[in-house]
Design a protein around this nucleic acid. Structure first.
Length: 553
RNA sequence: UGGGCCGUCGCCAAGCGGUUAAGGCACCGGGUUUUGAUCCCGGCAUUCGGAGGUUCGAAUCCUCCCGGCCCAGCCA
């Protein structure tokens, strides 16, 4: 069962870190951070960033902080923060320090005063609309407003009073004085502080002004001694500002911001706005719906943390706008579950089979290996009786070409048991098969049948011993590779993304299954006990992913 | 049309002036198999968005062109 770990490719960030290390930069330290805003649940795209940041630190013997970017109290909450902590831990990472941008509000304020004193920041009392107009457009430079040349004293006084709560939201902002004609719009006197008379989860009512991301992030990084500040491509344009702030402030530490491409995964969406829409409009059952690309959703679906980490390693880190096919993700989880998940028998859509050649009360306990390639996984008893259920799909009156399951008059192997032959097909008035009468070859338990080959093998469950279960099948949430490009996101939703089967029958050993326990239901796929709805009294399994199927259906 | 960035196999992705252009996914064979699974073995870019140029030698350097992404929040 030994499978070699995938050969790891290099990536440009590792190359940079390694050459920094070789050059003796940062005293040989590697310090990174994962900086989520606590205003939503983490998704697989965040997992990429988490693996990159924590993984890089781990790889080079460094440290990684978890830092909440809590600079906008109007949209952040503690609930999200807790969920984020749990997700990061579940993914298998532990932070060096748990930080909050709000921890630095005092320093941030002092630094802002420094900028004002040096004439590098000013209070602008224009309205939001005026500021926007004066900023110019992509092709037209901005124009200076009437407040740009206020005296240092006036700026200091105004900023102090903004802090003291003398003004209402929107009355003033603090802006950096950089270059209104810069081609990079981020440099056209960006906003540093805005007035928000809102209670902050951590600082309470202490502040009535809150710092903007661009100003806060670089300073926070510097305070924490971050060496490599890794972020996504859309912040590339912000790097000059990041560097400007730290250069002007003369902070002792000046981290290097490096940008990489965010993840795009086919047949799903990863934008916070769209995920919120799915939840709020009830297109899914919540953030942890197994169809959601959120960490909690994928966890509930049955993805393991290791498979997600493997996925992040396999897709690599570049600056290309890459779209990853679902197949990559599915291969990751199949690989891990194939190795670790015990095998079980479950019939999703049962049809009764009566083995007429067996006595009425025939009952026999068979021993099944839990894993075909791993003896250490042990075995379990599986009861075999005269009446069993098989999968409706595993019988065909008129079989398609190359079909190798049960057909009238034909033979098939019952997994781990005997070879049976279909002698009679019973149907109801509507022509639906209700029962199959079969004979068995008593000399085929654990041995091949004499004088003929039986290619097909099907799974089954004893009617008498089988346990009812609900099984939830999941398919891609969207019918389009890039649902974001659809005219309407809602129209792109796959009506078959969730199929709930309530008449399934599973082998008796599954009555001991725990929530979040993984199994392979032989010939069908990998399943997991639902984290919330599964119990020993009421079995509920989610299909994580199907088995690979190379049979042209 | 201002600024920033990206283009190596169907999808990812190594490569950093001299390699037979790694590897993974997908796909196509073939073998093993009481899961049409797994596993194994083999195939899969005379070519690096295009055209010029520099060089003994270019995916790697230069020029131009083509295609794509991001930016005008008092969001992050």
């Amino acid at each position: 069962m030994s499978r070699s770990e995938p050969v790891e490719a290099s990536n440009f960030i590792r190359n940079i870190v390694e050459s920094d290390l070789a050059a003796g930069k940062n005293d040989g330290q590697v310090v990174t951070r994962f900086p989520p805003e606590p205003n939503g649940y983490l998704h697989i795209g965040h997992a990429k960033s988490i693996c990159l940041n924590f993984g890089t630190a781990e790889r080079y013997g460094g440290r990684c902080n978890l830092r909440f970017d809590d600079t906008n109290p109007v949209r952040e909450s503690e609930e999200y923060a807790h969920a984020i902590e749990e997700d990061v831990r579940w993914l298998g990472y532990e932070w060096d320090r748990l930080c909050h941008a709000s921890d630095y509000f005092d320093e941030l304020y002092e630094y802002a005063c420094q900028l004002i004193r040096e004439g590098k920041a000013y209070v602008d009392s224009s309205s939001a609309e005026e500021v926007r107009e004066m900023r110019g457009t992509l092709t037209k430079p901005g124009t200076p407003g009437p407040y740009r040349n206020r005296s240092v004293e006036e700026n200091l006084d105004l900023f102090q009073r903004m802090k003291d709560g003398e003004f209402d939201d929107g009355e003033h902002i603090l802006r950096a004085r950089i270059d209104l004609s810069a081609g990079n719009i981020n440099m056209r006197d960006p906003t540093l502080y805005r007035i928000r008379k809102v209670r902050h989860v951590r600082t309470g009512d202490a502040w009535s002004i809150y710092p903007m991301y661009d100003y806060t992030h670089c300073v926070s990084d510097a305070i924490e001694g971050i060496t490599h500040s890794l972020c996504t491509l859309e912040f590339e344009d912000h790097r000059p500002l990041y560097d400007w702030v730290l250069d002007e402030l003369g902070t002792p530490c000046h981290p290097q911001q490096i940008e990489f491409a965010r993840l795009s995964l086919e047949y799903t969406v990863l934008s916070k706005r769209r995920l919120i829409q799915l939840v709020e409009e009830n297109h899914v059952h919540g953030w942890d719906d197994p169809r959601m690309p959120t960490i909690v959703g994928m966890r509930r679906r049955g993805y393991t943390a290791a498979s997600l980490r493997d996925f992040c390693e396999r897709i690599g880190i570049t600056k290309n706008d890459a779209w990853i096919e679902m197949a990559v993700l599915e291969t990751c989880i199949r690989d891990h579950l194939n190795r670790d998940a015990p095998r079980r028998l479950a019939v999703l859509d049962p049809v009764r089979v009566i083995i007429t050649s067996l006595p009425e009360n025939h009952e026999q306990t068979l021993t099944f290996a839990n894993h075909p390639q791993d003896e250490g996984a042990g075995s379990r008893p599986v009861p075999f009786t005269r009446e069993i259920f098989i999968e409706r799909d595993d019988f065909a009156e008129i079989p398609p070409p190359k079909y190798q399951r049960l057909v009238p008059g034909g033979e098939v192997r019952l997994r781990g048991a005997y070879v049976i032959r279909c002698e009679e097909v019973i149907k109801d008035d509507a022509g639906i098969v209700t029962e199959l009468r079969c004979s068995h070859d008593a000399d085929t338990l654990g041995k091949k049948p004499e004088g003929r080959k039986v290619k097909g093998v099907i799974h089954w469950v004893s009617v008498k011993h089988g346990i009812p279960a609900e099984i939830r099948l999941y398919n891609p949430l969207f019918t389009l590779p890039d649902p974001g490009k659809a005219d309407s996101l809602v129209e792109a939703i796959n009506p078959e993304s969730e199929i709930i089967l309530t008449s399934c029958v599973v082998e008796p050993s599954l009555s001991a299954a725990a929530p979040e326990e993984h199994f392979q239901f032989e010939r069908i796929g990998y399943f997991v006990g639902d984290r919330h709805d599964h119990s020993k009294e009421s079995l509920v399994f989610n299909r994580t992913v199907t088995l690979r199927d190379t049979w042209a259906s």
